[in-house]
């Protein structure tokens, strides 16, 4: 899923400063699961804004709503009768949701309340870690299910590098060396022959380097 972090409160307050009537809009998907932009976080942030604005004697109306998905046109439709009534909408969705909301309602000012950070997993309650960079050409079948693009700081394909020490990456002792993990799995499965093959440089044109990407299925189009 997509992981995000709430923006610093002061940054949010300065973004909202020129606007009186505000809608804090949550999203029921990824940002709910990573506890940054669901109905609960909408209620907390809206309450914080009300408390701060009243303390600073700023006249304001702060409203709350959470929809199923901000990245899906059919769920944005339910806002059509009400969204025009606000001076600004603070979206707690990922960058996709913020943009798509703004595309659907071009007259509405949509502001981001979170920083979208990565695609990852919930390792345990309260801890999310990165697993995929969406490079567009998956190599997990060759690397024993561990992604060298994402989990190796250098994204190298013939690792490890000299910065690997006792299974840890030189960038941070808490970060496992992805290539150490890959080799351990090769050994466990008796597949070290696969490791010995030199992998040629990756074609990054399927990743972000190739520009904005799209996927289309004509058979699904109505």
């Amino acid at each position: 899923m997509i992981i995000a972090d709430r923006k610093p409160f002061d940054e949010i307050m300065s973004m909202l400063a020129p606007y009186r009537d505000i809608l804090v809009l949550g999203c029921n998907e990824c940002v709910t699961v990573c506890a940054v932009g669901g109905a609960k976080e909408v209620a907390i942030l809206a309450s914080q804004i009300r408390l701060r604005r009243t303390k600073d004697r700023i006249s304001s109306e702060v409203h709350e709503k959470t929809i199923e998905r901000q990245c899906d046109i059919e769920y944005l439709e339910e806002l059509k009768d009400t969204i025009g009534g606000y001076d600004a909408v603070l979206s707690l969705a990922c960058g996709c949701g913020v943009q798509f909301l703004g595309e659907r309602y071009t007259d509405v000012l949509v502001l981001p309340g979170v920083n979208t950070t990565f695609m990852g997993v919930t390792e345990r309650h309260g801890l999310w870690t990165e697993r995929c960079q969406g490079c567009g050409n998956c190599v997990l079948h060759r690397t024993m299910g561990i992604c060298p693009v994402t989990r190796c700081a250098k994204s190298i394909f013939n690792g490890p590098c000299g910065g690997s020490s006792e299974g840890r990456c030189e960038i941070d002792k808490d970060t496992p060396c992805a290539w150490h993990l890959i080799i351990e799995r090769y050994k466990k499965k008796g597949m070290m022959d696969m490791y010995m093959e030199i992998v040629s440089p990756k074609d990054w044109s399927t990743a972000r380097d190739g520009g904005p990407r799209k996927r289309q299925r004509e058979d699904m189009e109505i």
Binding site: R50, L51, R53, T54, K55, R57, S59, S60, E61, V62
Partner: peptide, 19 residues
């Protein structure tokens, strides 16, 4: 609580609920 104090004042001054 500063919120409470200002809320009472703003309600009294403007005549509207506000916040």
């Amino acid at each position: 609580n500063p919120f409470k104090l200002n809320k009472i004042k703003s309600t009294r001054d403007s005549g509207r609920g506000g916040i």
